[in-house]
Amino acid sequence: MARALVNIPKTARRGDVIEIRTLISHEMETGYRPGPNGVLLPRDIITRFTCTYNGVEVFSAELFPAMSANPYLVFTTVASESGTIALTWTGDNGFSQTETATIEVA
């Protein structure tokens, strides 16, 4: 399992714009680099990131081989109600990881 770091405010006022920061450490392989035997190593990258806020998608991104080995993403959303923010990374070879955080909106 990859190591994910998530920075989401624990509290916010209704209508505030909140910043969400994520970083995931994942062994990335572009599929263009030869291995020790000269054969290309198979591609193994994170291909999609999705963020949902109480089940509603608020941000998504498709990632490609030129992306860094440890993708760092920063985006904003509006704090509308208390609930759960779920961050999901999916990739090659069946990779999928979800991290969740709760936010209290006053």
Results as ranks from 00 to 15, higher is better:
residue 4 A to N: 07
residue 5 L to S: 14
residue 5 L to P: 00
residue 7 N to S: 15
residue 7 N to C: 08
residue 7 N to P: 02
residue 10 K to P: 03
residue 10 K to Q: 11
residue 10 K to F: 03
residue 10 K to I: 01
residue 11 T to I: 10
residue 11 T to H: 09
residue 11 T to Q: 13
residue 11 T to D: 10
residue 12 A to N: 07
residue 12 A to R: 06
residue 13 R to T: 10
residue 13 R to N: 14
residue 13 R to C: 05
residue 14 R to E: 12
residue 14 R to P: 00
residue 14 R to A: 15
residue 15 G to N: 12
residue 15 G to E: 11
residue 16 D to P: 04
residue 16 D to E: 15
residue 17 V to Q: 14
residue 17 V to Y: 08
residue 17 V to A: 13
residue 20 I to G: 01
residue 21 R to V: 00
residue 23 L to V: 10
residue 23 L to R: 15
residue 23 L to H: 06
residue 25 S to H: 10
residue 25 S to I: 09
residue 28 M to E: 09
residue 28 M to S: 15
residue 30 T to V: 06
residue 31 G to S: 08
residue 31 G to D: 08
residue 31 G to C: 07
residue 31 G to F: 08
residue 32 Y to W: 12
residue 33 R to S: 12
residue 33 R to M: 12
residue 33 R to P: 00
residue 35 G to N: 12
residue 35 G to Y: 05
residue 36 P to K: 14
residue 36 P to I: 12
residue 36 P to D: 12
residue 37 N to Q: 11
residue 37 N to K: 08
residue 38 G to E: 09
residue 38 G to I: 07
residue 39 V to R: 13
residue 39 V to N: 11
residue 40 L to W: 05
residue 40 L to A: 13
residue 40 L to F: 13
residue 40 L to G: 11
residue 40 L to C: 09
residue 42 P to M: 07
residue 42 P to L: 08
residue 43 R to I: 06
residue 45 I to D: 06
residue 46 I to K: 05
residue 47 T to W: 05
residue 47 T to Q: 09
residue 49 F to L: 09
residue 49 F to C: 02
residue 51 C to D: 02
residue 51 C to R: 00
residue 51 C to E: 01
residue 52 T to W: 03
residue 53 Y to C: 00
residue 53 Y to F: 09
residue 54 N to R: 07
residue 55 G to R: 01
residue 56 V to P: 00
residue 56 V to E: 13
residue 57 E to N: 02
residue 57 E to I: 03
residue 57 E to K: 08
residue 58 V to F: 03
residue 58 V to A: 02
residue 59 F to M: 06
residue 60 S to A: 10
residue 61 A to L: 15
residue 61 A to M: 14
residue 63 L to A: 08
residue 64 F to A: 12
residue 65 P to N: 11
residue 65 P to W: 10
residue 66 A to T: 12
residue 66 A to C: 09
residue 66 A to G: 09
residue 67 M to V: 13
residue 68 S to C: 05
residue 68 S to F: 06
residue 69 A to W: 06
residue 69 A to R: 12
residue 69 A to L: 05
residue 70 N to M: 08
residue 70 N to H: 09
residue 70 N to L: 00
residue 71 P to F: 01
residue 71 P to V: 04
residue 71 P to W: 01
residue 71 P to N: 04
residue 71 P to C: 03
residue 73 L to Q: 03
residue 74 V to K: 13
residue 74 V to A: 08
residue 75 F to E: 04
residue 77 T to H: 03
residue 79 A to K: 01
residue 79 A to L: 03
residue 80 S to C: 08
residue 80 S to V: 13
residue 81 E to Y: 07
residue 81 E to A: 15
residue 82 S to G: 13
residue 83 G to M: 06
residue 83 G to N: 08
residue 85 I to F: 06
residue 85 I to Y: 04
residue 86 A to P: 02
residue 87 L to W: 01
residue 88 T to D: 05
residue 88 T to C: 11
residue 88 T to H: 04
residue 88 T to S: 09
residue 89 W to K: 03
residue 90 T to R: 09
residue 90 T to E: 14
residue 95 F to A: 05
residue 95 F to Y: 15
residue 95 F to H: 07
residue 95 F to R: 03
residue 96 S to H: 04
residue 96 S to R: 14
residue 97 Q to P: 01
residue 98 T to A: 06
residue 98 T to H: 06
residue 99 E to F: 10
residue 101 A to W: 00
residue 101 A to I: 01
residue 101 A to S: 15
residue 101 A to M: 08
residue 102 T to G: 09
residue 104 E to F: 01
residue 104 E to C: 00
residue 104 E to G: 03
residue 104 E to R: 02
residue 106 A to L: 10
